[in-house]
Deep mutational scan, measured.
Amino acid sequence: MATGGRRGAAAAPLLVAVAALLLGAAGHLYPGEVCPGMDIRNNLTRLHELENCSVIEGHLQILLMFKTRPEDFRDLSFPKLIMITDYLLLFRVYGLESLKDLFPNLTVIRGSRLFFNYALVIFEMVHLKELGLYNLMNITRGSVRIEKNNELCYLATIDWSRILDSVEDNYIVLNKDDNEECGDICPGTAKGKTNCPATVINGQFVERCWTHSHCQKVCPTICKSHGCTAEGLCCHSECLGNCSQPDDPTKCVACRNFYLDGRCVETCPPPYYHFQDWRCVNFSFCQDLHHKCKNSRRQGCHQYVIHNNKCIPECPSGYTMNSSNLLCTPCLGPCPKVCHLLEGEKTIDSVTSAQELRGCTVINGSLIINIRGGNNLAAELEANLGLIEEISGYLKIRRSYALVSLSFFRKLRLIRGETLEIGNYSFYALDNQNLRQLWDWSKHNLTITQGKLFFHYNPKLCLSEIHKMEEVSGTKGRQERNDIALKTNGDQASCENELLKFSYIRTSFDKI
């Protein structure tokens, strides 16, 4: 039985969820670079991206490699990797027998973001014989899940209580170790020597080791999670996991709180800001991140802002960003909400898709409305799209047979046209069989910064309504002859009103 693990408890099935942008060198404390989270699957090609990484700022997932063999891993080693800020997950990587050479110096898994409450997941690794993470000293947050690894031993010899604050939620089941077939031998045991430290858990006094050649490092209890030197002297209180010299914040392997210019500090002093819960960055760093993602459509890219001495992905609820200094300031009234469309555009074809934009005031991208039916549609669209004030790209209304009016965009005031449909149009209306009105132009103002209007096959939309939009939106004169079809717009509506004058002759039985 794995020490510190839980057996036999019912657990939810383990679901495996399925960018080499360097964020800056980590400095003297770390020998390499800070790398983003990685999802490495199918083959070993991307694994080489770990070569210079000291910190993975995010998670590391290595999974679904069915053609790899043990010899493929023999020359692979990433000794610079010290810390993973989120979680480490391995799933069905064939041929991998140990992690001792792959990650010989991995010391800390912070667990800032977890995989279903777990910071370390080893699942269905069919050839893994031992973990071998002999320098792993601290899992700051989260638990361990090690399950269905039929060859995995050296679990009962690990004292997880020396690595985690609590072992109650560890789930370590259905491994070879369960069948008591392992016969784990710690260093020196074969020669009758006791080389590794022994600890007591559940009444068992057991030597602690990761492999037959690597003991588990056990520091004096007084050192807590700070770690200790090879001689057993406690590291500085700002260290986490390990250090090369005692009581020196510049000799830590990793930091308990924050890293700044080669030393570990309790908090980031001005003019620095907390970033990702582990390091200090200056304003320029946060500003660069903001600008890199301002026009990016890459998933996970955030326009970072500053709030409460932190550089964070977005302002919290009730705050909006001051564009001059990136500071989050309290909103006066309802907060603006910028919604970034991942692929640059979004099609609204149902109430469900409209709900995804609920509360958005600025759309960074283009909207395509293609709704053919739905219950209580006008009210639903207004509830979900009615706060949109600005669209950076274009607005396209296409084959939306259920629409009679666009009044559900009740606050839309600006279409920038930074991206144009077919390279020309910022407003595009095609084949809307029941569209009769755009907006009530006596109450609604709309500016279209650039781009043209396109109207074709809107049989109940009168040309007068379209011409009014040209005047109000500032697009009059931009359109070419064929942009607004004269014969297919309003051709099934009563669009022309003329005053009919009647004269009559009164007659009676005795007068003409």
Score class of each variant (00 low, 15 high):
Cys215Ala: 06
Pro336Phe: 03
Phe258Met: 07
Asp247Pro: 01
Leu106Gln: 00
His307Tyr: 03
Ala156Trp: 07
Thr157Val: 06
Met65His: 13
Cys264Ile: 00
Gly183His: 13
Thr221Arg: 07
Ala156Gly: 11
Ile84Gly: 00
Thr157Ile: 04
Ser143Met: 14
Leu260Met: 02
Met65Lys: 04
Val173Leu: 13
Arg263Ala: 02
Ser77Trp: 07
Ala198Ile: 05
Arg110His: 08
Ala198Asn: 14
Tyr272Arg: 03
Arg162Gln: 14
Phe116Ala: 10
Glu181Arg: 05
Cys186Leu: 03
Val200Leu: 06
Cys286Gln: 01
Cys196Arg: 10
Asn149Phe: 01
Phe66Ile: 14
His236Gln: 04
Leu106Lys: 00
Cys301Arg: 03
Tyr154Thr: 11
Asp159Leu: 05
Leu136Gln: 02
Cys228Trp: 01
Gly95Trp: 04
His302Pro: 07
Thr250Ser: 07
Gly132Arg: 01
Ser296Phe: 13
Gly37Gln: 10
Gly32Ala: 09
Ala190Lys: 04
Leu131Asn: 02
Thr229Gln: 08
Val265Gly: 01
Trp210Ile: 13
Ser225Asp: 04
Cys335Thr: 04
Asn43Cys: 01
Ala230His: 14
Lys217Gly: 03
Pro270Lys: 04
Gly183Ile: 07
Ile201Ala: 08
Pro70Gln: 13
Thr199Val: 11
Lys100Cys: 14
Cys301Tyr: 02
Pro313Ser: 09
Lys148Ile: 00
His214Ile: 07
Gly37Tyr: 08
Gly142His: 01
Ile56Lys: 00
Val305Ala: 06
Ala254Ser: 10
Glu238Phe: 04
Leu64Ala: 10
Glu180Val: 06
Thr189Lys: 14
Leu89Thr: 05
Glu147Ser: 06
Glu207Tyr: 06
Asp178Met: 12
Ile82Lys: 03
Gly232Cys: 15
Trp210Cys: 03
Tyr118Ile: 15
Asn282Trp: 00
Pro31Ala: 06
Gly58Glu: 01
Cys239Met: 00
Arg256Gly: 04
Ser77Asn: 10
Lys80Tyr: 15
Arg46Met: 06
Phe258Pro: 00
Gly300Tyr: 07
Cys235Arg: 00
His290Leu: 05
Val253Pro: 03
Leu174Val: 14
Asp165Val: 13
Val200Met: 05
Ser166Tyr: 14
Phe275Trp: 13
Arg298Ser: 07
Gly333Ser: 15
Ser317Ile: 04
Leu44Ala: 11
Ala119Ser: 10
Asn135Glu: 02
Asn242Val: 12
Ser143Trp: 12
Cys252Ile: 00
Lys193Cys: 11
Cys53Ser: 00
Tyr87Ala: 01
Asp288Lys: 04
His291Tyr: 15
Asp101Leu: 15
Pro104Ser: 01
Glu180Trp: 06
Pro36Glu: 04
Val34Pro: 13
Leu96Thr: 15
Gly32Asp: 14
Asn325Ile: 03
Gln276His: 06
Ser324Ala: 08
Asp178Val: 10
Tyr319Ala: 13
Phe116His: 14
His48Arg: 05
Asp288Arg: 15
Asn242Lys: 03
Asn282Ser: 14
Asp184Ser: 08
Pro197Phe: 09
Glu168Trp: 15
Lys80Gln: 07
Gly203Trp: 11
Gly58Thr: 00
Ile40Gly: 00
Asn138Glu: 15
Phe205Trp: 14
Arg69Ser: 06
Arg263Lys: 06
Leu164Gln: 07
Val93Phe: 07
Arg113Val: 01
Ile40Thr: 02
Gly203Glu: 14
Leu289Asp: 08
His226Asn: 10
Pro271Val: 07
Leu131Met: 05
Tyr304Leu: 05
Asn149Lys: 01
Leu60His: 00
Arg145Met: 09
Phe285Cys: 03
Pro249Gln: 09
His127Arg: 04
Ser296Gln: 13
Glu180Phe: 07
Asn195Val: 10
Arg46Thr: 01
Thr250Met: 09
Asp184Tyr: 09
Arg263Asp: 03
Lys217Ser: 13
Leu64Gln: 02
Phe205Lys: 14
Val305His: 09
Asn242Gly: 06
Gln204Pro: 10
Asp75Ile: 07
Leu89His: 02
Ile40Phe: 14
Lys80Glu: 02
Asn295Ala: 09
Cys53Ile: 04
Leu133Tyr: 02
Tyr304Val: 11
Ser323Ile: 13
Cys228Arg: 01
Glu180Tyr: 10
Thr199Tyr: 05
Ala156Leu: 11
Pro104Val: 01
Asn105Trp: 01
Arg145Thr: 03
Asp75Thr: 07
Gly142Thr: 00
Met83Tyr: 07
Tyr118Gln: 07
Arg162Asp: 09
Tyr319Gln: 15
Gly227Ser: 14
Arg279Asn: 08
Lys294Ala: 15
Arg69Glu: 10
Cys239Gly: 01
Cys255Leu: 00
Tyr304Gly: 06
Cys286Met: 01
Glu124Ala: 08
Tyr259His: 15
Leu81His: 00
Asp184Ile: 03
His48Ser: 08
Asn117Thr: 05
Asn43Asp: 12
Arg256Asn: 06
His28Cys: 11
Val200Cys: 02
Lys129Arg: 05
Asn135Met: 15
Val144Arg: 01
Arg74Gly: 02
Cys215Ser: 06
Tyr154Pro: 04
Ser112Lys: 09
Asn117Trp: 06
Ser166Val: 07
Lys310Ser: 05
Leu164His: 08
Asp178Arg: 09
Cys328Thr: 01
Leu289Glu: 06
Pro104His: 00
Tyr87Asp: 00
Ile139Thr: 01
Arg41Ser: 07
Phe78Cys: 03
Leu102Val: 12
Asp86Trp: 02
Cys239Lys: 00
Thr107Met: 05
Met38Ala: 10
His28Ser: 07
Cys286Asp: 05
Val55Phe: 03
Asn42Tyr: 11
Tyr134Val: 15
Asp165Arg: 08
Thr329Ala: 15
Leu155Gly: 05
His59Thr: 05
Lys310Phe: 10
Thr199Gly: 11
Ile109Phe: 01
Glu33Cys: 06
Ile185Met: 11
Ser237Leu: 11
Asp101Glu: 12
Glu238Ser: 06
Cys219Ser: 05
Tyr118Trp: 14
Ile163Asp: 00
Ile185Glu: 02
Gly111Gln: 00
Gly241Ser: 11
Ser77Lys: 06
Glu130Met: 15
Gly142Trp: 00
Asp184Met: 15
Pro270Ser: 04
Ser284Glu: 03
Pro220Trp: 15
Arg298Cys: 09
Gly37Thr: 13
Pro31Leu: 06
Thr85Pro: 00
Ser317His: 15
Ser225Trp: 11
Lys191Glu: 02
Pro197Ala: 14
